[in-house]
Design a protein around this nucleic acid. Structure first.
Lengths: 252, 252
DNA sequence: AATGGGTGTTGCATATGTTGCAACAAACTT
DNA sequence: AAGTTTGTTGCAACATATGCAACACCCATT
């Protein structure tokens, strides 16, 4: 791989955390200031980096444009969105859509709860991979060696007492999820929040995305939330059918 | 500037047009296949590029995550502040910056009038939402159903005889504000104080904040204050440009 | 007005890292 | 099975990125 490009690209996540000046960039990259300057200049010419009035650098508009095109290319999102909204209309809770890519699970869509109490999550943000219902669904579909490889590499932070403690427990949970075709997260990420999720499959049966419904204890108990399971699964299946084209041909 | 990085970054807009295989990328870059391969690999490692099952490359979801993180860490206040100060330097009146959050409009910055007579307001304090110019600007940008939902829920205290009396009047006012792109509050909150305001927009055109200039009658009449409108609008636009990073368009 | 610390910027010699090649591997067509 | 297309690796040659040191600049301090 290319060292120069590697360094240049490392600047992006760094700037995503907030603006930084030349010195800071150089230091965090471990290179000379002049080197950092030239990398930043190149990024700047491509519009990925913007220089604000105080001379500090931050991510540029071009990146947003690219990101926009990137999500548009993920057409699961496009197809799923109206169904997620419809589901939210019926149950009122927060609905998430996530995909697995490069060892990460990312939220790519979200429909906010209608209740005043909202949970914290962020589109584009990596999911708590060891506990989230959507993460379990997406990982459960990998091959057994892949699952094991990933499970070994992960950290298992104990967000709550009910978080997945270690690789063994995680693999076991994935096996259950794979078997039953749906997943839960009962207070594993935040003590008072429960989720239920179902997989969205492509034409070949592989899981291409996962969706979930989340609600805090103060609104509905875990048992009540579970009564929504059939609805969630049906929604996921509808989306799967539309996505895989067995129902409605939509796009070329 | 760096040739290697330049080439690597040129791949991104190329892939934004749709997935492409190694050969196509190499050809459109004008480099050898092996070179393109190494560049793509580096992009891949950073998650900016994703390799789909048919081995073709497309933009990766990480791009989306980066952009999302960036907007979240973008501080309007930080960017706006120097411009607000400059505006205050020129006109001498109190300048406010406000955002909409969770059904409320909050002041997040303020530059005090240089005149001895000052109006009462406080950073972090909720704004008089039915009358303030900044509130009108922020609410006017919501969707029609959202606006109606909020307008219904609000109280309409008659701070003065010129306060907005009810939901119908408020919605009508919002429509006007939305149309004209600026707002006023002429004695609606305190009998002797007038404000004019303008919206600050993000890269996608949505209103992310609003600013206003306020002055009491004893210093300038409402008509005199209105002569500042072009200046206020220009300032808001300058901030918008800087915030959205669209100041410097550059092309290959 | 002069000094000094803090930036960002440029020219240059060195050698490091990138390049294109050509040969190899693998997957599909015929 | 042979042939075509596409992706991948090792290597030698050279172009390119690198760090340095000197410079320019701005701001605060004296």
């Amino acid at each position: 791989m290319s060292q120069t490009v590697d360094r240049a690209l490392s600047i992006l996540p760094l700037l995503a955390q907030g603006p930084a000046d030349l010195g800071q960039v150089a230091e965090r990259l471990g290179v000379h200031k002049s080197t950092a300057l030239r990398l930043l200049r190149t990024l700047h010419e491509h519009g990925l980096v913007y220089r604000q009035e105080d001379q500090r650098y931050r991510l540029g508009a071009r990146l947003f444009a690219l990101a926009q095109e990137a999500v548009e290319n993920l057409d699961v999102r496009e197809i799923a969105h109206p169904h997620l909204v419809a589901l939210n209309d019926r149950c009122g809770h927060t609905v998430h859509l996530a995909v697995y890519e490069e060892q990460e699970v990312l939220y790519i869509d979200k429909v906010e709860s209608r209740y005043p109490v909202r949970m914290y999550s962020r589109i584009g943000k990596p999911v708590a991979i060891t506990v989230a219902a959507v993460a379990k669904l997406l990982l459960a579909d990998l091959t057994e060696p892949e699952r094991r490889a990933i499970a070994e590499k992960l950290d298992y932070p104990m967000y709550t007492s009910r978080s997945t403690p270690d690789a063994a427990a995680f693999l076991k949970e994935l096996a259950v999820v794979r078997e039953q075709g749906w997943a839960t997260d009962l207070g594993g990420h935040e003590e008072s929040i429960n989720c239920i999720g179902a997989p969205i499959r492509g034409a070949d049966g592989r899981v291409v995305a996962a969706m979930s419904v989340s609600a805090p204890n103060v609104v509905v108990t875990a048992e009540e939330l579970l009564t929504l399971l059939p609805l969630v699964r049906r929604t996921a299946e509808t989306i799967s059918r539309e996505y895989s084209g067995t129902n409605r041909p939509k796009k070329a």
